[in-house]
C-alpha cells in the first residue's frame, strides 16, 4: 500500500515537472522549429509542429543578407575581451582580500558591490557624450571597457568567495619552503583556483554576451554585437519570422550551452555567494 502511494507520487510529480519544464522551454523550442520553416509555414494557422517542409535556407539567408558572422564575432570579442580584462584586474584584488584581509576589506567589497547597483541609465548621458567626444561610439574598445567595468564587481566577488575556500595552510607551507609570492600564485594558488576562475569566466561571458543596455545605446553597426543585430529585426519591414528565428537560434545557442554547463555555479555567482 505504502509502496503504491510512493509510485503514484513519483509518477505524478515526474509528469507535472516535465510538463512545467516543457512550458518553460516551449518558446525556445518553437523558435528553433520556426527557424527551419519556410516563411509561409512560419505564419501558417494552424501552426505546423513537425510536419512541414524542413529547410536550412533561413540560416544561409541570414548570413548573406546581413553579415551575421561580423556581429557574432563582435559578440565573441566583446564578451571574451571584457571578461578576460576583468579577470586580469580582479584576480590580484580578490587574492589579496581573501588571503590577507584587513579591517577595510569588508567595506571595500561592499562598496564594490554598491557600484553594481547604480542604474546604467543614471550615467547614460555622460558616458554617451564622453564616447562621442572621444570617438568611441560604435567602437569595440569603448564597449569592452564599459562591459568590463560593469561586470568587474561581480568578477571580484565571485573570485573572492572561491579564493576564501582555499586552505591558507598550504600557502604558508610553501612560503616556509621559500616560495616567492609570484611562484606561490602560479604554482600553488592557480591550480587550486582554476575551477573558481573558470566558473567566474563562464558566468561573466554569459552576462556580457546578453548585455543589452550599453550595446544598444553605444553601437550601431561596426561594433554591434548580436543583441543589436537581433534588435534590427524589430522594424516592421523586417518581419521575417523564420529568419528572425534562425538568427536568434544562432545568437543564443553558444550561451545556452555554456549556461547549461555552468548552471550549478550560477546560483552562487548571481547571489554574490549568499545562496550556495
Amino acid at each position: 500500500m505504502a509502496r503504491k502511494r510512493t509510485t503514484t507520487r513519483i509518477v505524478v510529480s515526474t509528469v507535472s515537472a516535465w510538463v512545467v519544464g516543457f512550458i518553460f522551454f516551449f518558446p525556445i523550442l518553437w523558435m528553433i522549429l520556426t527557424s527551419f520553416k519556410t516563411e509561409l509555414d512560419a505564419f501558417s494557422i494552424p501552426p505546423k509542429f513537425l510536419f512541414f517542409h524542413w529547410t536550412t535556407e533561413n540560416y544561409a539567408t541570414v548570413q548573406e543578407r546581413s553579415n551575421y558572422v561580423h556581429h557574432a564575432l563582435n559578440s565573441v570579442i566583446l564578451a571574451g575581451g571584457s571578461t578576460l580584462i576583468a579577470l586580469l584586474i580582479a584576480v590580484p584584488a580578490a587574492y589579496a582580500m581573501a588571503f590577507s584581509p584587513t579591517k577595510r576589506t569588508r567595506g571595500t567589497l561592499m562598496w564594490m558591490l554598491s557600484t553594481k547597483m547604480m542604474p546604467p541609465v543614471g550615467v547614460l548621458v555622460p558616458i554617451y557624450l564622453l564616447f562621442r567626444d572621444f570617438n568611441l561610439l560604435d567602437s569595440r574598445i569603448g564597449l569592452i571597457a564599459v562591459l568590463c567595468l560593469g561586470n568587474l564587481p561581480i568578477v571580484i566577488w565571485m573570485l573572492f568567495t572561491y579564493f576564501k575556500e582555499i586552505p591558507k595552510d598550504i600557502l604558508e607551507a610553501a612560503r616556509m619552503d621559500g616560495a616567492t609570492i609570484g611562484k606561490e600564485m602560479v604554482y600553488i594558488l592557480m591550480p587550486m583556483a582554476v575551477p573558481g576562475i573558470a566558473s567566474t569566466l563562464l558566468l561573466n561571458v554569459i552576462l556580457a554576451w546578453n548585455e543589452a543596455f550599453w550595446t544598444l545605446n553605444l553601437t550601431t553597426s561596426t561594433a554591434a554585437p548580436l543583441t543589436v543585430f537581433i534588435a534590427s529585426y524589430s522594424s516592421p519591414e523586417g518581419l521575417f519570422w523564420a529568419k528572425l528565428s534562425a538568427a536568434s537560434t544562432l545568437a543564443i545557442a553558444p550561451i545556452l550551452i555554456i549556461g547549461w554547463f555552468s548552471q550549478k555555479q550560477l546560483v552562487r555567482g548571481l547571489t554574490f555567494g549568499a545562496v550556495k
Binding site: F24, I28, W209, N210, V228, A231, A251, I252, G259
Partner: peptide
C-alpha cells in the same frame, strides 16, 4: 535544463 534555459536567452531575442 529546460527550466533554466530562458535565463540564458538575450533580452532582444
Amino acid at each position: 535544463l529546460m527550466v533554466i534555459a530562458p535565463f540564458f536567452v538575450m533580452p532582444t531575442v
